[in-house]
Design a protein around this nucleic acid. Structure first.
Lengths: 142, 142
DNA sequence: TCATAAGGTCAAGCAGCTTGACTATATGGT
DNA sequence: ACCATATAGTCAAGCTGCTTGACCTTATGA
């Protein structure tokens, strides 16, 4: 199996299993794309335009996604403290709970891998992946 | 940066850059999903149902995808040699040329990573990824 | 031989994305 | 101070790729 194929297979598997884990914890109204949005919102909120750039979609699409997570109670729109044109999208308590659930689910998968590879191998794997990973916007695998 | 985030970022980057490389080689009418289909068709062809299971979509969706790549000249439907209900989808010469272009593009990206990590590190990375990669159907990252 | 399963396609509907148009606010040169 | 231009965001319409449901054909097995 080629490196590229193994990388794509592992990433797809990870996404699917995080999603399954989040669903199993009761958050059944979200898709994997929402998780990437939550990750961007978590530190201190973000604007719709920030989110759009991070997700690699138009700001209209990002705005629709925000509509959805606001409607479902995971985030809220606040006036932006420094720019009256903009709004700051921040996670609600429910949004934070869901984010923690996703982190738990990811840790479960990574933990299973660590059981197969061992801690030292996992550290080496992480270090190499970080060195080849880009810093720009997140991209879907296909 | 967490292992899971690095893995997803690297995989998304790889997909995007393979797609860009394939486009740059003249195949501008394909999307990343087609590459995963080609990979399944390449060895010796596959049925629509096989393809659907591999891509994780319904057989109707797989059939539509086959319609498209047949219409664009990358594959053709042949009668299945052992089952009169089924059809064997096989790559045309154009399909093979495109597959080689994708392999070249992937090799370019992997080569760039090798330049950063070194050959020994890359072998270790590949070996570890293979050990955590699943064998089931391919899954999109989101 | 006939009930049931499996491969494939046709048709309709829908979700998520795009482009285009628009309003409101910010920014910077004159 | 003013105005041209850029930026943040939303509304509306349309498209594409996927889904579900119905159906035909061929295979399988009791």
């Amino acid at each position: 199996m080629a490196l590229s194929a193994a990388l794509l297979a592992a990433a797809g598997d990870l996404t699917q299993r995080i999603h399954d884990g989040v669903s199993a914890r009761g958050f059944t109204d979200l898709r994997p794309a929402h998780g990437f949005a939550f990750a961007r919102l978590a530190p201190g909120g973000a604007t719709v335009t920030d989110l759009a750039a991070h997700l690699g979609v138009t700001k209209q699409a990002a705005s629709q996604l925000v509509d959805e997570i606001v409607r479902k109670g995971y985030a809220e729109r606040r006036p932006h403290p420094e720019d009256a044109r903009a709004r700051l999208i921040v996670l609600t308590e429910r949004g934070w709970t869901c984010t923690r659930a996703a982190e738990e689910a990811a840790a479960e998968v990574v933990g299973e891998w660590a059981g197969r590879l061992g801690e030292g191998e996992m550290r080496a794997l992480r270090e190499r992946l970080v060195r080849i990973a880009p810093h720009g916007p997140i991209r879907p695998v296909w």
